[in-house]
Design a protein around this nucleic acid. Sequence first.
DNA 1: CTGGGGAAGGGGCCC
DNA 2: GGGGCCCCTTCCCCA
Length: 611
Amino acid sequence: MQATRTPSVFADCSIPAGLRIGPVPGIFKLGKYVSDRKDAGVKKMIRLVRGEFVDESGSAVHEWIGLIRAARNSQEQNLEAVSDLPGGQIFYRVLREIQAGEELSVWYSSALAQWFDISTTATPTHDEKGEERYICWYCWRIFKYPNTLKAHVHFHCALSNGKSFLSNEQARGTDNFSRSPKSGDIPNTSSSPRNGHNTLLSDSAKRTVSTSPATKAGLLKKTSSEEQDRALDMSVTSGRNPGHIMGLGGTPSVINSMGFHPGVRSAFKPMGLSKISPAEVTRVESNAKSNSIGFSKLLGSIKSPLPNVHPSKCAHPMDTTPPVIPCANTIRGFPLLPHFEETSAFKHVDSRMHSALSPSRYSQIPSAFHFERFPLSQFDGGKSYNGDCNIPLMPFTVYNGELLYSSPYYPLKFHFGNLLKYPDTVSYFGAPALNPDLNSITNIDREIAMHTQQLSDISVEKNRSRLESIPTSNPNSGKPKKGHLCLYCGKLYSRKYGLKIHMRTHTGYKPLKCKVCFRPFGDPSNLNKHIRLHAEGNTPYRCEFCGKVLVRRRDLERHVKSRHPGQSIKKTDDKMEDIFEDAEQKSDNDSDVDVCFTDDQSDQESSKNND
DNA sequence: CTGGGGAAGGGGCCC
DNA sequence: GGGGCCCCTTCCCCA
């Protein structure tokens, strides 16, 4: 899915430094929607008229201030968000003179960043090209800009709990960042803004918000549009909800006691893997497999991984209350899945997987909704229901002999499309994993852990629309569709292999590498396509009108269409066909022997070398 | 306009 | 025959 292009605010005239814009209405969530990529949206021009900022239609500040983009770094930042009092009204202060035509771009002042528990620093690392990159030491995502990383950690990272370990130095504990600044000088009041991203709003809650004092005061004069939502996420609960996340930022010791040590490379692998011996992994896997004997047995074993939490409370996995997680393979409360194959996510289902998927979300989804779409009979006797909550842990259905889990989630691309790819095929643990499967487990588990949290941000309405597009075996919908269903996005594939490759788009697992440039690929077809690029001059498509050589038929067609309008490509050119075949054969040979290899193969090779 | 990658569908081979 | 896989091709998106 392509991200909606949102307007951004530009200066229509020069704006002198020191001026204030604001106040910012609504719940302040600056940066929640910032990404490394900046879409070219509609320009909203603002100017100073008699000392007041208005846009081209004369609208006052609160109408458009939410459209001002979050700055990705200090270079593009020309405003800073400030507040006179902790928890008070927030304004944007002009840091330097803004030229006419320049985009307004804002980031937190230091004080405000502390108040919001957002890191004030992020130390870059460098990629293989020497370009600066910012790594989230929780989930290993890589960002181009410091602020996108900060926002990621604060708003989105499933593994950070919103904490701010951003730089290598911080991660190693060489400063005080391991301690939430908010637990210090600034009191952690119920109006503290952090935590919004962990909440999910019911309709009633939305109504509550809509009648909040802020709304009544006219600050939220207009219903929040998508655009305004970027900065003023009004659709989520604030301090009015004394919810389960509150206190997270103020209880760092509890979090740390869970054994996570940012920056220590083993800190990630380990939560899932270091504590599990290969034998243990095998055991868990075999358990899962044995469970697959009967779904009723499997489903009946589903329990919350948080034994201290009464199911009726439907505690969120991010809740800080239960620091003790009995499962060995967890990431700070996010259970890691046992070893399972890429495509077997619906095959070897472990009970903890389901409980990891944030039962609290379901606690706020009208249960009738699930019942309606997933009749009890489809849940294998209803054993997937939590008896105390009377809420289904996961909408299961069994179809074609496979356990289908109809994801109520939105397509994941929606969430990750703005993020840079992280180095999927490199070893995260300093050295290549001895067992390639373990490496893949890590990728898959990490992805799932992240997806779990990312997905928890999604509104019920989106879930509903998503669910409605999921193929079901509903007798009313005619002949049931056959195929292999993707756990994540609900897509149906006619072939299992197709699903396997597709799953890699969710998990990020890219076992194939170009041996020339080491670029990783998840899809062998794409690797082969890529490999052709290395076959210099040996490309099969040459323009018969100008001699230009192109690597794909599409390129040639596009080229002829644009450069030689009216001309057409000959249907088949024997000579070209020969060249193509030669190139193909070369490519095939190369791909078998020299050019591409999988992690497995490379491991075999390395082990041979070691021998 | 062009180059490149992501994703997916379908044909075909091998076991 | 079915499963797994490779490969080609196409479409789409993006820089």
